[in-house]
């Protein structure tokens, strides 16, 4: 006759049905509840941040900044002079984004952005950083061999095109202004913004085309 320990069975049953979160999920839950108790964060602010950055804020904001720079030379001059201030004009400045510097691609030069230390990124205007941006491979290689990394992304640069690699920090982040594609003179800013890819604002995309975004 089979025997069983009712306490053990109860324990197994509870365990199976407890939906115990993963170890990191429990650690985060612990941190959040400690910080809420201490009055250092509010749960609703955490939830709101996740909602906004997961869903609402994406590279569209940056694309509108670029489109306006293409269409409005005065704005472009202000953007190049003080990126944070110019972006603030459009109501896109966000907290914790640091100072923003805009760098412009030309036929003779290409800009690409990295954060070699961690993953600093202008998320207030570009949304969350793409996964490759956070990898050790990108963070180390784009500094050592930018042309090879860019080639992997499909950006083939001629030898006489200069490459500038910008290393972001907590205090200073970068936005690449890609070159405006040809035959877009009649487009509105909204139409232009649709041509701007996220990667082109990081520098891992270069030749934008009509219908490429």
């Amino acid at each position: 006759m089979p025997s069983f320990d009712p306490k053990k069975i109860t324990k197994i049953h509870q365990h199976l049905h407890s939906h115990l979160p993963s170890d990191p999920a429990l650690r985060v839950k612990a941190l959040e509840t400690i910080l809420v108790e201490k009055g250092m964060v509010k749960s609703e602010n955490i939830d709101k941040w996740v909602e906004v950055y997961a869903d609402d804020i994406g590279p569209k904001r940056g694309a509108h900044v670029v489109a306006r720079a293409w269409a409005d030379p005065d704005f472009k001059a202000r953007l190049l002079a003080d990126g944070s201030k110019a972006v603030d004009e459009m109501g896109f400045a966000g907290p914790a984004s640091g100072h923003l510097k805009a760098v412009e691609n030309t036929p003779e030069s290409h800009n690409v952005v990295v954060c070699t230390l961690c993953s600093c990124y202008p998320f207030a205007i570009l949304g969350m950083a793409p996964n490759w941006y956070k990898t050790a491979a990108y963070r180390s290689r784009v500094v050592r061999e930018p042309r090879a990394v860019l080639a992997e992304f499909g950006v083939e640069l001629s030898e006489d095109t200069a490459v500038h690699v910008w290393d972001s920090t907590a205090e200073l982040r970068y936005l690449v202004i890609p070159e405006r594609p040809a035959r877009t003179e009649d487009m509105s800013q909204d139409e232009l913004a649709k041509l701007v890819t996220r990667n082109s604002m990081i520098g891992t995309d270069r030749d934008l085309k009509i219908g490429s975004a």
Partner: peptide, 15 residues
């Protein structure tokens, strides 16, 4: 996973 977003959310709120 949700906790990944929450880690960044907590850090960025504190910053």
């Amino acid at each position: 996973e949700a906790w990944q977003a929450q880690v960044l959310a907590i850090a960025q709120n504190l910053v």
